[in-house]
Amino acid sequence: MRIGILGAGNMATALGAGWRAAGHDVMASGRSGSLADAGRFGPVVLLAVPATAAVEVLAHIAPDTVVIDCTNAVTPGFGVEHPYAAITAARPDLRVVKAFNLCHDSVWRQPSRVFGGRPLAVPMCGPASAKEVVAPLVTDLGCTPLDAGGPERAALLESTAAFAIGLWFAGADAQAILQPTHTDSGDSLLTR
Rank of each mutant, 00 (worst) to 15 (best):
P180L: 06
A176L: 07
R31G: 08
F163K: 09
A21S: 14
A89P: 08
A28R: 13
R40G: 15
G7M: 08
Q179D: 08
T65E: 06
S159C: 07
H182P: 01
Q110G: 03
R153T: 09
G117R: 01
A38W: 00
A22V: 02
A155G: 12
T160Y: 01
H82M: 14
V138P: 01
M11E: 03
Q110D: 12
T71N: 14
A8M: 08
L94N: 11
N72V: 11
A62T: 08
D64E: 15
R20A: 12
P127C: 00
L46S: 08
H182S: 10
A48T: 14
P119S: 05
V133N: 04
T75E: 13
P76C: 11
D147Q: 07
P76G: 10
A51L: 13
R192Y: 10
A54L: 10
L178D: 10
Y84L: 10
D25R: 10
L167M: 14
A176C: 04
A121G: 02
G18P: 05
T144E: 10
R153S: 13
V55A: 13
V57G: 00
P92H: 11
M1W: 01
A54K: 15
S185Y: 14
T191H: 10
T88V: 15
G149R: 02
V49L: 10
T65R: 04
G126L: 00
I177W: 08
A38Y: 00
F100H: 04
A59V: 14
I165W: 04
K131Q: 01
